[in-house]
């Protein structure tokens, strides 16, 4: 917890230090929000019954997805587990991570959680406020909905973290994950409900998506926020997210143990 606090303070200071970078990130998300907002408005003018949801709900969904992207898609950040591991493996510095009295998975989780919380408070929240006041974003549908949404974001973060971590571990085998990362980002964009709502896909594809963890990252929290889920569905959704978060975390743990053992015996 205190390591988390240290990382959080470090992020705060870094934002102060690199103010232009920070403002650019905020600008980027505002522009992206405005962009998707205009896109859906234009689509609705063509055919209001296009997606089966009222325009304000759809615009809220799309804009919130873009805002959440700041915390959920930090692939550009060096601290994202897959980028960090790739960097350390490439430069041979991974030894130094193994020399710390904490587990690598723990180290990365704590750092990324701190980065995510920082981005949530200083980037997502302002973007959300501006969205609500100027771009017609709706508020969440009640107190329970808000609480469930918060829980859902945390679980979504954990699912994404574990997927990223597993991707990072691939690096120990292949030494380079740039190509795999491209494919992975593509899959994430298309199947997580970030850009295209999953209910617009054909039935067979939706069935496949239901079996995969990706929709736990964006679709779940967004559906909870926009209030299209009933309370029973919300509970089921959170449980499913919890299941994937736990399963992937354990998988990451197992995989890391194996890799670690291999490193210790084979010497990287």
């Amino acid at each position: 917890m205190r390591v988390f606090g240290s990382w959080f303070k470090t992020e705060m200071r870094a934002a102060g230090l690199y103010r232009a970078d920070f403002l650019l990130r905020l600008c980027y998300s505002l522009i992206a929000m405005y962009g998707v907002c205009s896109l859906w408005r234009a689509l609705y003018r063509q055919d209001p019954g296009l997606v089966g949801r009222p325009l304000p709900a759809m615009v809220t969904y799309a804009m919130l997805a873009v805002a959440l992207d700041i915390i959920f898609y930090p692939s550009a950040l060096k601290s994202a587990p897959q980028n960090y591991i790739a960097d350390q493996v490439r430069t041979g510095r991974i030894d130094t991570d193994l020399l710390r009295p904490r587990d690598l998975q723990f180290q990365l989780l704590v750092r990324n959680a701190a980065v995510a919380l920082f981005s949530l408070l200083w980037l997502v929240l302002p973007a959300w406020l501006l969205g609500v006041f100027f771009l017609g974003m709706e508020l969440p549908a009640g107190v329970i909905c808000t609480a469930a949404f918060a829980a859902s974001i945390v679980l979504g973060f954990l699912v994404l973290f574990s997927l990223n971590f597993l991707l990072g571990l691939v690096c120990f085998v292949t030494l380079d994950i740039r190509q795999i990362t491209m494919a992975y980002s593509g899959i994430l964009t298309i199947l997580s409900g970030k850009l295209i709502p999953n209910w617009l896909y054909p039935e067979w594809m939706q069935a496949v998506i239901r079996l995969l963890p990706f929709r736990c990252i964006f679709e779940m929290p967004l559906n909870i926020y926009t209030g299209v889920l009933e309370s029973g569905e919300i509970v089921r959704g959170l449980l499913l997210q919890g299941f994937w978060a736990l399963a992937l975390f354990c998988l990451g743990r197992l995989a890391w143990r194996k890799v670690h053992k291999y490193l210790a015996v084979q010497g990287g």
Partner: peptide, 10 residues
Amino acid sequence: DSLRILKEMY
């Protein structure tokens, strides 16, 4: 900052 993070880790 690195030193402070290590402080907590150790």
